[in-house]
Amino acid sequence: MNRRDFVTMLSATAVTKWASLETAVQAAAAPLKQLADQKGLMFGSSLALKYFEQSPAYKQLFVSQCDIATPELQMKWNSLSRQPGIYDFSTADQLVAFCATNRIKVRGHTLVWHDSLPVWVPGQLSPVTARTVMLDHIQKVAGHFAGKLYSWDVVNEALDPGSQRPDGLRSNLWLQNIGVSYIEQAFRATAAADPKALLVWNENYLEVSNGFGDAKRKAMLNQLDALLAKGVPIHGVGLEAHLRGDQANVLGDASYEAFLSELTQRKMKIFITELDIQDSSLPADVGERDKIVADIYRKFLTASLRQPAVKGVVAWGLSDAFSWISGYRPRKDGLPVRPLAFDINCQPKPAYFAIAEALEAAPRRV
């Protein structure tokens, strides 16, 4: 039985109901990091150590499946600094130490963002002070972890065509107080503070082939052209890929692959950084829902991984038991969401097999 037939069988049968099927699932579920490594790729997930305390099975699952991790919250500004100039790295240090022990690379996330700011930051920003506040933060945080991380998401979600700016930049506090040069300054400062780390611009909605997504892609390419021409050290682009179950017709098409090719021509390494699929609009039937979610994973990742510049896939969680979507976009019918590769019991779902198929179909990176 091939993987696709196995997915069909899973979609028609509740996995946790049949012990014999559970055994078959476990036997067929090769670690995703292993499948990725065979193609020169990385596979991983967002990480919060508190979930391991709640579920030892999840800890075992994480270590078995992942060779790269992104801190879910622990390196965001409001998690590190509750008061001006005072930083507490203890939780983030524990995460980095855990990953080092288990040979898991860490993506630093994130240095400059309009969200997840401590309450004290906005009041301290002005055209006179904002540059110093931003650069001090980068120097403290990137400097603290210097040499320990694989990469940094230096700027996060800096584009917004809805702002009606010709350059497509989001009108956030950094842009308002520093100007368009804040992106250049952030990358240069991070390179100085942690020179061995890969420096990434992490962005949302670049995956979606519609008017908004097309405008974002155009803005991203224009920004990269201008910044790279000045020698700004941008090494990669992260595609968040928080996808929705009703987006199948605007994902993974030729225009998306053409955009990835444009990034490649600019010598960008590409990462899928926050992958999950919201199922709030999908049918209640678990089998039908799981099949739709799996088909989207397969279509999107197959298209993404055809481009050799894509170096890794990071899901925003592994088990449905620990998905932010449960709170962010719950189902109106009250049923549990099922956005990830493994169910609440850490058993593989059709989504797992779809991801595995896409990894197996990917060309090997040289």
Rank of each mutant, 00 (worst) to 15 (best):
I104E: 13
Y58E: 10
V63A: 11
T70P: 05
Q38R: 13
L359P: 05
G213V: 03
W77I: 10
R364C: 08
A219N: 07
G317P: 12
S116N: 13
L61R: 04
A303K: 12
E257S: 15
S45T: 14
D343T: 04
S46L: 03
K349M: 04
G108I: 01
K140L: 11
L35G: 07
V237Y: 08
L335Q: 10
Y297E: 04
W201M: 08
S261C: 02
G162C: 02
A197R: 04
G231K: 04
G108F: 02
R165L: 14
A341E: 02
S64M: 09
P363S: 04
T13F: 02
Y328E: 14
P166T: 10
L149K: 00
Q223I: 09
G162P: 07
L260T: 13
M268N: 06
L282Y: 00
L159Y: 03
I178K: 10
L224K: 02
K148F: 02
H242S: 11
T190M: 03
P330L: 00
G162Q: 11
M268H: 14
I296T: 08
F353M: 07
N249H: 15
S151C: 03
A14G: 01
A193V: 05
T110P: 10
R365N: 11
Y51S: 11
R217Q: 13
H242P: 06
G334P: 02
R103T: 12
L169T: 00
Y51W: 14
L169C: 04
A254L: 12
G245R: 05
H144R: 15
G213C: 08
V208P: 01
A142I: 05
Q185I: 00
S45F: 14
D333W: 01
V293G: 13
G40L: 13
V180W: 00
A315D: 08
G287R: 01
K299A: 08
R217Y: 08
G213T: 08
D214V: 09
D194W: 00
S304G: 05
S209M: 13
A12P: 03
I277Y: 05
G317M: 07
S319I: 02
S90Q: 05
A14P: 11
N202S: 09
K105A: 15
L227F: 10
A219G: 09
H235C: 07
A146F: 08
D276V: 08
L32R: 12
V310E: 03
S126C: 08
S20G: 06
V7I: 14
W316S: 08
V96K: 09
L117K: 06
H144N: 13
S79R: 06
Q124L: 06
K230R: 09
N204F: 12
R107S: 01
G231Q: 08
M134N: 06
W77V: 07
P84C: 09
